[in-house]
């Protein structure tokens, strides 16, 4: 298949975005008296060659990847779900509800996992319905609902579900029966991500529904011209992305933290936006991008410990990367203009 000019511009723009972010991060390393090359080598070693580090990287990658997979679907439809963070938290909360309140034991982690996912999906469907029926911008509604989920999390960890034994703002560790089993020495979430990725690829590129989503994302007017059902695209697309964010939240709760705590909302839902954009919203690239990005994140955390480079530098870089990637569409135009001149 031939690349369209749009795809070429986007590729160039992505490379540009990553280069600028890396350059700035290198600058920070130098400012702190480090050697960028040495720092990147160390990051890579810590994140991928060290067995403990690799497990941590994969743990991070699976959550990031599952959320990004959902986002890649909804972004393809040109809809901006900025609320994955909240959907992730609510997924964890719903799973917690099954464990702590309902105490549903049959099926082990399956029931909380599915209910967590479904809750995340329904939570994202609210902005979907608002968008479809009333034309409310989904960027605002999804973003605002993050805070609702966040304070709900605080409510349960500081209040009703707080562990009475320790008194810390964390919920009690869940019994072993609920825990998501490890697969191949890594968190179960990794296997889930690797299973979902091809399924979503199939949905997006080999079903009519996926085709409609893509058409809607590429030219909304054309989708309406062809008479596509807006509800299925808008509400459905947001539901799918919320479903996966909820699944990731429930998965982290059941498979790696085994409890809820205030830091359960750690910004993964925002980072996943970057991963999806880096992967061109392509479900088969998302796993790779999420593993690489998780490696960068984990590596930079270790760098903070061993080389005194503050974690804030990591946030600086991820923030910068997001800004650069989001402005890609403007750069596309700019690069296109430049290409015509040359």
């Amino acid at each position: 298949m031939e690349l369209s000019p749009m795809q070429i511009y986007r590729g160039v723009a992505t490379i540009l975005a990553v280069s600028i972010a890396v350059a700035v991060y290198s600058g920070v390393i130098i400012l702190y008296g480090g050697d960028p090359v040495e720092a990147y080598t160390k990051m890579f070693r810590n994140a991928f060659l060290d067995p403990y580090g690799l497990r941590e990287t994969m743990r991070l990658a699976s959550a990031l990847g599952i959320i990004s997979l959902g986002l890649s679907i909804v972004f393809r439809a040109g809809l901006w779900n900025i609320g994955a963070e909240g959907q992730y938290v609510l997924g964890g909360l719903a799973a917690g509800y099954v464990v702590y309140v309902l105490g549903l034991q049959q099926g082990g982690p399956l029931a909380p996992l599915l209910i967590g996912a479904l809750t995340g999906g329904l939570y994202a469907a609210i902005p979907g319905v608002l968008r479809w029926r009333l034309g409310v911008n989904e960027v605002l509604t999804t973003l605002m609902l993050n805070y609702v989920a966040l304070y709900l999390l605080y409510y349960v960890v500081y209040g009703v579900w707080r562990d009475p034994q320790t008194g810390f703002p964390v919920t009690p560790e869940i019994p072993g029966a609920y825990r998501l089993p490890e697969v191949g020495g890594f968190v179960g979430g990794l296997a889930i991500m690797l299973l979902i990725a091809p399924a979503l690829y199939y949905l997006l590129f080999h079903t009519r529904y996926g085709f409609k989503l893509r058409v809607y994302g590429l030219n909304r007017e054309a989708a309406e011209y062809a008479g596509y059902d807006r509800r299925a695209i808008i509400v459905g697309g947001l539901f799918i992305s919320g479903l996966l964010a909820g699944l990731a939240g429930a998965g982290d709760f059941l498979g790696s933290y085994y409890r809820l705590m205030p830091r359960f909302s750690s910004g993964l839902g925002y980072t996943a936006i970057i991963v999806a954009l880096l992967a061109y919203n392509h479900p088969l690239i998302v796993p790779i991008a999420s593993i690489l990005f998780a490696g960068f994140l984990y590596g930079s955390y270790t760098l903070a410990i061993v080389a005194d480079i503050p974690t804030e530098a990591t946030y600086l870089m991820t923030g910068l990367l997001l800004a650069m990637l989001v402005s890609t569409q403007y750069m596309e135009r700019w690069i296109g203009w430049l290409a015509r001149r040359l």
């Binding site: 085709f211 058409v215 590429l218 030219n219 007017e221 011209y225």
Partner: peptide, 26 residues
């Protein structure tokens, strides 16, 4: 139907085949 603005009747980034397919998908 060819609308007054033909750009609203095509999907940029998709192939010619897909630009036929999207019109009569079902």
């Amino acid at each position: 139907y060819v609308p007054g603005n033909p750009y609203s009747a095509m999907v940029p980034g998709m192939s010619l085949v897909d630009n036929v397919r999207f019109r009569v998908l079902d």
